[in-house]
Amino acid sequence: MEKGRMRNLTMTAALNTALREEMRRDETVIVMGEDIGVYGGVYGVTIGLQREFGPDRVRDTPISEMAIAGMALGAALGGLRPVAEIMYCDFLAHAADAIVNNAAKWRYMSGGQYALPLVVRSPAGGGGGTAAQHSQSLEAWFTHIPGLKVVMPSVPRDARGLLKAAIRDDNPVVFIEHKHHYTYKGEVPAEEEIIPLGVADVKRAGTDLTVVSWSRHLTLCLEAAEILAAEGISLEVVDPRTLQPLDLATICQSVAKTGRLAVVHEAVLFGGFGGEIVAQVVQECWGDLKQPPLRIGAPFCPIPYSEPMESFVIPQVTTIVDRLRAYLA
C-alpha cells in the first residue's frame, strides 16, 4: 500500500471501513443490531458487511434493545468482541440497564476477572426534524458511569481510527455518532490507523480562545473559526474525541496559551458535559484564565419538531460565531 495515500470518505464509509477491517482481522468481532444486516443499517454504516461476513457474524435482531446490549455483554464474557448498534441513541434508554448496571460493573464487581471488549454504537443528535425522541444528545449520561468509555468522533479519520481502537479495547465503549453528520467527508489514510482512546486532537491552532467541542458541533466550530479568522479573531479548536477518558492535559495546555475557554455542544447545557470540562479547567488552570469560561449548548427543553424551533434550540454556526464574538469583545 502506498504510504501516505489518503482517501476522501464520508463518516459512514469511514465507520464501515473500520468495521470491515476489524472483522477481517479478527473473527471474534461480530456485529448485531436492528436492520443492520440485509439492509445495512438505517444510516448505512454496516452496508455490505453481511454479504462479506455472513449472517452469523452480522446479525439482524428483533427490536429488543435490552437484549441487544445485554447479549453483547454476554458474548464478550464468552470471549467475543461484539459491536452492537442501537438504532437511535434515544433507545439507549432501553439498553441502559445492560450498559450501565451490567457492562460497566461486570469487571469491577468480579474483582477484575473479566475483560469486556464490547462496543455499543449509536447515532445521536438532531437537525433533521426527528423531534424529541430521535434527536437527543445523551453523552453526559454515560460519562457519569465509571467503567464506560465514551467516544464521539467528529471527522471521518477519527471515526475510523477510534472505532478500531474501541473494538480492540477490553472495556465497554459507548461509541456515539451523529445522525446528521454521516455524509460529512474528510481525508482518511488508506493504510491502517488506530487512534488511541483518551487522546485529544487540536483541530485548529489559534491564540485568542480555546474552543472545546466534539461530534458534529466540532465541525461547526471549525466553520465558525474560519468566519472569525476573517475578522482577525484566532480560535484554537480542541476535539477531545473521547469524553471518557478525557484528555484534560491537552485542553489545559491550550487554555494556558489562549487564556480563554468556550465549550460548545449540541446537548442540553444544564448537566451537560461542558460543565465538567469547565469545572476541571477552572480547577486546573485558574491562573491562566483571563475571563470566566463560556458554555454554549441547547436550552433546557426537548428537541422540538418544527424547523424554526429546532434550529433555535440546536446551536447553529451563526449562533456560535455571534456568541464567541460577543464573548471576546
Partner: peptide
C-alpha cells in the same frame, strides 16, 4: 438486577453457538 442476567445468558449461548 432482577431479570438483568437473561440477555447475558443469550449472549453466552450465542458465543457457544458462534464458536
Amino acid at each position: 438486577i432482577v431479570g438483568g442476567g437473561m440477555p447475558l445468558a443469550a449472549g453466552a449461548a450465542f458465543t457457544a453457538q458462534y464458536t
